[in-house]
Design a binder for these strands. Structure first.
Length: 827
RNA sequence: GCCGGAGUGGCGAAAUUGGGUAGACGCACGGGACUUAAAAUCCCGGGGGUCGAAAGGCCCGUGCCGGUUCGACUCCGGCCUCCGGCACCA
C-alpha cells in the first residue's frame, strides 16, 4: 500500500481528534511538574495570520509539544488582545460594531491557528474586550488610584490626529504614531497616568536578574528608563521668591556655569514675563517654540534658539551674577526643565554660548595648560583636573570629582544628590470607545470620585454611533455619561476616557490560571505554583512597550500582595521577523499587512499541507534571526516529508526477507539513531529547530540506505523509524501522528515520552582521526574509538599520504586529541 | 556620540557552548539514471587559484590588520562595515 502522501486527508483528521480529546487542556489547580509556555497574544483586529506572525506560533507550538513529550505538565493558553483602534476605525468606516468585528476576526484567526495544527488550551481562552476580563482592569485601576499610582494631571501630551486620541511616549516612534504613522502633535490636556516612574529603580534592578532574556531587550529597556546620577542645585533669581532648581550630571563643573537656561514651558517663565519690561518678546518667543513640532525641536541639526530674559541669577558657588535665558533645547519634561549652562565642558551649552556671545569659563585644565575660551572650537567634557573651582581645585575629572561636588553642595545647602530618569509616567487615557472604561465619576461638588467596587464593571454602552470626526462616541451616550455621584448622590458625569490596550496585556498571563473567576482578579495560590512564565515567545517590537508595562504591573500586583513575584517572565525568546520583498518599494522588508508583502499560510497549507509550512518556517534559519521568506525553499520541506512518508510505507509493508538478518544491540543504524536523538534534543533545547531538522534529514536517509542494503534487522529498522517519528513530531505533528497510529501504536504521539539516548551508543564505533603535520591537514586515518597515541603515531608514519611529510625529519612533538586529531610537529 | 547585536560559498545557513577536518542540511544550478517524452523521483558534482591526461597534489580562503597557540571562524588587542535601540536627556 504505497500510497501518496496526502496532507489534505491526514491533517483535518488529527486536528479534530486533538480537539475531541482535549489533549491540550491542563488542570491548573492540581500540582504537577509545571511548565508555563506563553506566546504573545495576537491582536484580532489585524484579522489574519500571515507567515511572518506564524513563526511565533509555530515555534511556540513546537516547544510546547516537546515539553509535553518530555513529560511536563505544560500550559499553553491563548488569549486575544481584543480592544484597540483598528476595530473602532473599522466601525467608523463600515458601520460594523467593534465587538462584532472583533469576534468575527477572533473566529477567523482561531481557524487559521488550528489549521496549522497549533494546540492551545482553549478552556483558558480569554478576550480582553469581555466584561469578565476588563472589570479587573477597572478594579486594578481603583487599587492604584487609592495608592496614588493612578492620577490625573494636565500635561503636554502626544496627540495622534489620525487616531484622534492621545498616546503614551512608548507609542511614539520617531515623532510618529506607532500604529498609524501620523505625525504626533503636542497638546495640553488633562489625562490619566500610571506612576511607572516610581518603579524606575526596581524595573532597572530587575533587569540584572533576567539572565535568560536577550541582551538587546534589556539594553533597550535600560536606555528607555535612562537613569543618570547627578545633583539638583538651586539657583536664586533676584526677581523671584523661589529659587530655580536645576538638574545636572556634572555638578563638578558648577564653577563654570555662566548662564541659566529655562525651557520656554517652565512654570517660572510666566512670572518672569509679568515682571519684565520685555514681556511681549518673552511671550512671543514662548509661543514660537511651542508651535515648533517636537520632532524638529529634538532633531540634532536643530538650531539653538534663545532669548535673554534680562533677569539675573546667582551662581551658587561663585556668587557671581549670570544671565537667565530661555532656550528651545531645554526640554520641559526632563530633569527640572531648567539647566545650568557650562559652555566650556558641555557641547550644547558651548554652541549656545558661541551663538549668543555668552562667556565661557573653563574649570578643567591639563598638564599642558589651560583652555583658552577665545580659541576653543568645541566643549571639552572629560579632561584634566579642576581649577578655578575654589576648594575643589586639583581633583581629577571623573566620578571622584562629582562625589566631592555633591558633598560640598549638600553641606552648603545649595542642593542635593539626585538620580534622574528619562522614563515618564505612562499615559493610559484614550479618547476612544473600544477600550476599558476608566471607573471614575466627575461631580461638581466632590470632584473626581472613584466608582465603588460593587458597581464594577462599568460596562461599555451599546447605544453608540461611530462617526469618527465627532470624537469619542462615549461622550454622546447619555445612558453612559449621566449618572449619580457615589459620594453625594448628586448629579455625576462619567469619565469617558478608556484605557490603553496595553493595560489589558500587562497582566493577562496571570488570568489564564483562573479565567472564569468572578470573585477575584488573580488566584494567588495558583500563581504561586505556576509563576513566573517559564518561557515567553514573542517579537522584538514589544521590547519596551508590553514588556516594560507587564514588568511594572507585576510589581504593582506584588505590592498589592496578590502575587509574590517581581518578574513575570523568567525566560524570553524574541524570534526574528520574517522579511519578504515589498513589491511597492522593491526592498526586503518586515512582512506585514500594512506593507502589502504578506504571504498567507492558507494557500500554502492548501498546496503543501500544514506540516510542510511548519517545517519550512522552522527550517528557514535560526529563529532569533531575521529570515527572508522564499517560496522556492518550501518544496525542500515538502520533499523531505514525502521521503518520510515513503519510508514509513516501506517499513509498514516490510517482511523479514526485506530486512537484513542481523539483530544486535549495537549496529551502525542504532548508533546513528542515538546520535540523532542527542542532536535533536540539544538543538530543540536552544530552539534551533533548523539544525534539528537537518539531523532528521540525515537520519531519514540513513534508515533508507540501511533498508536498501539489507544491513539491519527488521526490529532495528522499525525502531529507528518510530524514533524518527517521535523526534519529528514537534515540527510535523500530523504526519507523525498518522504513521504512529498506522504502525500500530497508541495513544497520541503527543503523549509519548521523548526518546532518550545512550551516550555510549551516541558515538560511532570507528572514528576518523585527522592527521596534521605542523598544523596542516595531511591525511586521515580510520581507527577504532579509543586508539592510543603510540598506535596512532605508528599508523600515521606508515600512511602513504603522511609519510612524505615526516620522512627524514625529526618529530619534536605530537599533539594527540583522542578520537579527533593527531598533530605531528616536525623539524 | 553612547549602548547592544552581527559580518562564513550563487542563496538560507552549519561548525562558535570546551580552540581540533570550515561549508553539515536545504534552495537554486550543472550532469546522470528511470521515461516514447515531460513531470515526479533517485544518484552524482560544486569556495577560489594552480599543477596534472587522469587519479590526485599544492597554495590561498570565515570583514581587515596584528597577537597567543602545535593548531584560530572560535580566544586577545586594534580597526572597518552593516543592523537595532537611545540621543540637544543637561
Amino acid at each position: 500500500m504505497n500510497d501518496r502522501y496526502d496532507a489534505a486527508s491526514i491533517e483535518p483528521k488529527w486536528q479534530r481528534r486533538w480537539a475531541e480529546d482535549h489533549v491540550a487542556e491542563v488542570d491548573t489547580s492540581i500540582p504537577g511538574n509545571e511548565f508555563y509556555m506563553l506566546n504573545m497574544y495576537p491582536y484580532p483586529s489585524a484579522s489574519r495570520l500571515h507567515v511572518g506572525h506564524g513563526r511565533n506560533y509555530i515555534l511556540g507550538d513546537a516547544l510546547y509539544r516537546r515539553e509535553r513529550m518530555a513529560g511536563r505538565k505544560a500550559l499553553n493558553p491563548m488569549g486575544w488582545d481584543a480592544f484597540g483602534l483598528p476595530a473602532e476605525n473599522a466601525a467608523i468606516q463600515s458601520g460594523v460594531h467593534p465587538r462584532e468585528y472583533t469576534l468575527a476576526n477572533i473566529a477567523r484567526m482561531k481557524e487559521q491557528l488550528e489549521s496549522l495544527g497549533l494546540l492551545y488550551d482553549w478552556s483558558k481562552e480569554l478576550a480582553s474586550c469581555e466584561p469578565s476580563y476588563y472589570r479587573w482592569n477597572q478594579w486594578l485601576f481603583l487599587r492604584m488610584w487609592e495608592r496614588g499610582l493612578a492620577y490625573r494631571k494636565t500635561a503636554a501630551v502626544n496627540w495622534c490626529p489620525g487616531c484622534r486620541t492621545v498616546l503614551a511616549n512608548e507609542q511614539v516612534v520617531n515623532g510618529r504614531c506607532e500604529r498609524s504613522d501620523d505625525l504626533v502633535e503636542i497638546r495640553d490636556l488633562t489625562q490619566w497616568f500610571f506612576r511607572v516612574t516610581d518603579y524606575a529603580e526596581r524595573l532597572l534592578a530587575g533587569l540584572e536578574t533576567l539572565t535568560d532574556w536577550p541582551e538587546r531587550v534589556k539594553t533597550m529597556q535600560r536606555n528607555w528608563i535612562g537613569r543618570s546620577e547627578g545633583a539638583e542645585i538651586s539657583f536664586r533669581i533676584e526677581a523671584l521668591a523661589e529659587p530655580i532648581p536645576v538638574f545636572t550630571t556634572r555638578p563638578d563643573t558648577l564653577f563654570g556655569a555662566t548662564f541659566l537656561a529655562l525651557a520656554p514651558e517652565h512654570p517660572a517663565v510666566a512670572q518672569l514675563a509679568a515682571r519684565s519690561g520685555k514681556r511681549a518678546a518673552i511671550e512671543q518667543f514662548v509661543e514660537k517654540v511651542r508651535r515648533e513640532s517636537r520632532l524638529d525641536r529634538e532633531a540634532e541639526s536643530g538650531v539653538k534658539e534663545g532669548l535673554d530674559t534680562g533677569f539675573v541669577a546667582l551662581n551658587p558657588a561663585t556668587g557671581e551674577p549670570i544671565p537667565v535665558w530661555l532656550a528651545n533645547f531645554v526640554l520641559p519634561e526632563y530633569g527640572t526643565g531648567a539647566i545650568m549652562g557650562v559652555p566650556a565642558h558641555d557641547q550644547r551649552d558651548f554652541e549656545f554660548a558661541r551663538r549668543f556671545g555668552l562667556p565661557i569659563r573653563p574649570v578643567y585644565r591639563t598638564e599642558e595648560g589651560e583652555l583658552d575660551p577665545d580659541v576653543m572650537t568645541a566643549a571639552v567634557p572629560h579632561v584634566g583636573f579642576l581649577y578655578n573651582s575654589g576648594e575643589w581645585n586639583g581633583t581629577p575629572c571623573g566620578p571622584e570629582a562629582v562625589r566631592r561636588a555633591v558633598e560640598w553642595i549638600e553641606q552648603k545647602g545649595l542642593g542635593k544628590g539626585k538620580i534622574g530618569y528619562r522614563l515618564r509616567d505612562w499615559l493610559i487615557s484614550r479618547q476612544r470607545y473600544w477600550g476599558t472604561p476608566i471607573p471614575a465619576i466627575h461631580c461638581r461638588e466632590c470632584g473626581v470620585v472613584p466608582v465603588p467596587d460593587d458597581d464594577l464593571p462599568v460596562l461599555l454602552p451599546e447605544d453608540v454611533e461611530f462617526r469618527g470626526a465627532e470624537g469619542n462616541p462615549l461622550e454622546k451616550s447619555r445612558d453612559f455619561v449621566e449618572t449619580t455621584c457615589p459620594s453625594c448622590d448628586g448629579e455625576g458625569r462619567r469619565e469617558t476616557d478608556t484605557m490603553d490596550t496595553f493595560v489589558d496585556s500587562s497582566w493577562y498571563y496571570l488570568r489564564f490560571l483562573n479565567p472564569h473567576d468572578e470573585k477575584r482578579m488573580v488566584d494567588s495560590e495558583r500563581a504561586e505554583r505556576w509563576m513566573p512564565v517559564d518561557q515567553y515567545v514573542g517579537g522584538i517590537e514589544h521590547a519596551i512597550l508590553h514588556l516594560l508595562y507587564a514588568r511594572f504591573v507585576c510589581r504593582v500586583l506584588k505590592d498589592l500582595r496578590l502575587v509574590n513575584l517581581e518578574e513575570p517572565f523568567e525566560r524570553l525568546f524574541n524570534q526574528g521577523m520574517i522579511t519578504n520583498l515589498n513589491p511597492a518599494t522593491g526592498k526586503i522588508e518586515k512582512m506585514s499587512k500594512s506593507r502589502g508583502n504578506t504571504v498567507s499560510p492558507d494557500e500554502l497549507i492548501a498546496r503543501f499541507g500544514a506540516d510542510t509550512v511548519r517545517l519550512y518556517t522552522l527550517f528557514i534559519g535560526p529563529p532569533e534571526k531575521e529570515s527572508e521568506w522564499s517560496e522556492e525553499g518550501v518544496v525542500g520541506a515538502f520533499r523531505f516529508l514525502n521521503r518520510v512518508h515513503d519510508l514509513c510505507c516501506r517499513v509498514h509493508t516490510m517482511t523479514r526477507e526485506a530486512a537484513g538478518q542481523r539483530d544486535a544491540a549495537d549496529t551502525p543504524l542504532t548508533r546513528f539513531e542515538h546520535r540523532t536523538i542527542r542532536r535533536v534534543t540539544e538543538d530543540a533545547e536552544r530552539f534551533h529547530f533548523h539544525t534539528a531538522v537537518a539531523a532528521l534529514m540525515e537520519f531519514q536517509r540513513a534508515i533508507a540506505e540501511a533498508f536498501d542494503s539489507r544491513s539491519e534487522a527488521e526490529e532495528t529498522l522499525v525502531r529507528a523509524t518510530k524514533t524518527l517519528l517521535k523526534l519529528l513530531h514537534p515540527v510535523a505533528p500530523h504526519l507523525t501522528e498518522e504513521w504512529w497510529e498506522r504502525l500500530g501504536e497508541r495513544p497520541f504521539l503527543l503523549e509519548t515520552p521523548w526518546p532518550k539516548f545512550d551516550p555510549e551508543l551516541a558515538m560511532t564505533s570507528r572514528v576518523t582521526l585527522v592527521v596534521q603535520v605542523n598544523g596542516r591537514v595531511r591525511g586521515k586515518l580510520d581507527v577504532e574509538r579509543g586508539e592510543d597515541e603510540a598506535a596512532a603515531v605508528a599508523l600515521a608514519r606508515r600512511n602513504e599520504k603522511i609519510r612524505p611529510w615526516v620522512e627524514g625529519k625529526e618529530i619534536t612533538r605530537a599533539v594527540y586529541v583522542p578520537d579527533r586529531l593527531l598533530n605531528l610537529v616536525v623539524r
